[in-house]
Design a protein around this nucleic acid. Structure first.
Lengths: 189, 189
DNA sequence: AGAAATTCGTTAGGAAGCTAACTTTCAGCT
DNA sequence: AGCTGAAAGTTAGCTTCCTAACGAATTTCT
């Protein structure tokens, strides 16, 4: 990611040579990527300070509340309140199953989750948050939420709404793109 | 990056348990990261289709116009119109010098840039775009600009301006953060 | 019932980023 | 002049992601 964005005048100048270059579009495009990268980098640093990566944190979030509402040692099978198998987790997190194997590996090594065999299908596993994993989230989530509140504190409620609306439009546009992950081109039968 | 964002009602519900959780802040935060990731992923796929990575593309962009205005074989040393040494490139691209070594390695292997010794300081090198590198940019940049125009086509000119303004506020907020890359905490003397 | 196709989780190998340590070269002091 | 410190570029090793291929288990189709 480029650290220093080209200034708007430079875009105007380059637009004379490239008819496809729309200065305001390029400006918005670059600002979007740059800002998100800044926000992301700080979050990443916070997570790293707590010894966890973004990928692993995402998995914990997906498992969150999967086991929390149960007080006793009731098996995981009750209540479909979140993804549980590695394949479901991979799909929800937007990574490959192979990557999820590695994420769950380290989470299990650190004691945040456990793998259990699925009683009904011996191909599958069930990933469950341990007490230690829950405790970690209970400790870390306030930090995370505080950060989100802090970074968005620059915006009023109305501005946040506007931002979400505009981002939603952009996101819809990406979903229409042929190279989009959410709308990959289906092969013709 | 999580593929499916939590719905707003879920945030409201979780906010009852976590006083630090500001629902509208979390919503804007998640949308920002998610949208930028979608936009980025498509751009990445476009670059990959042309056999180049985002990191390498960034380097080419930094070198762009460094050599273009010269018609003959005038040496690079004339005109300070862009970063040239690996260290400058690394700083401008926001990566480490070690990473820049790898990026320039592959760019040089593919014939897009060349390394030349700096005549005035034998520690340094000068990285220069080759004709092949220029040709690649001339071919690819229109695609890239078209994509930026397309993805931002969902927004009116006024909306783009608003988006840039709101993102600017968020970015300023991140710059103030202690873990920010742009404002790392200086050790007290 | 049994062959074929699919799905599961995993392994192996690659790309791109990082940090830490290194060599070479230069700049600043005495 | 000569030592010390800093900077340039590189290397080595780590992390996290990916794709491709695999064996085991299940489902589907005759």
């Amino acid at each position: 990611m480029l650290k220093d964005l080209p200034r708007y005048e430079c875009l105007l100048e380059a637009a004379r040579e490239f008819p496809d270059l729309d200065p305001t579009a390029a400006e918005a495009y670059l600002h979007l990527l740059r800002t998100a990268d800044d926000v992301f980098a700080i979050s990443d640093a916070q997570l790293a300070a707590h010894g966890i990566s973004h990928g692993r944190f995402g998995v914990l979030m997906l498992l969150w509340r999967t086991s929390a509402p149960r007080t006793g040692d009731v098996p995981i099978t009750q209540g479909p309140c979140g993804p549980r198998t590695p394949a479901e987790l991979a799909d929800a997190a937007g990574v490959t199953r192979a990557t999820m194997t590695g994420l769950v590996d380290t989470l299990e090594r650190d004691g945040f989750v456990v793998r259990e065999p699925d009683p009904s299908d011996r191909r599958m596993l069930l990933v469950r948050l341990t007490r230690k994993g829950e405790n970690f989230l209970a400790r870390f989530l306030p930090i995370h939420f505080r950060y989100a509140r802090e970074v968005m504190g620059a915006l009023s409620e109305a501005e946040r709404k506007t931002l979400v609306r505009l981002l939603g439009k952009v996101q819809q546009q990406t979903a229409r793109h042929p190279l989009s992950r959410s709308a990959p081109v289906a092969k013709s039968a």
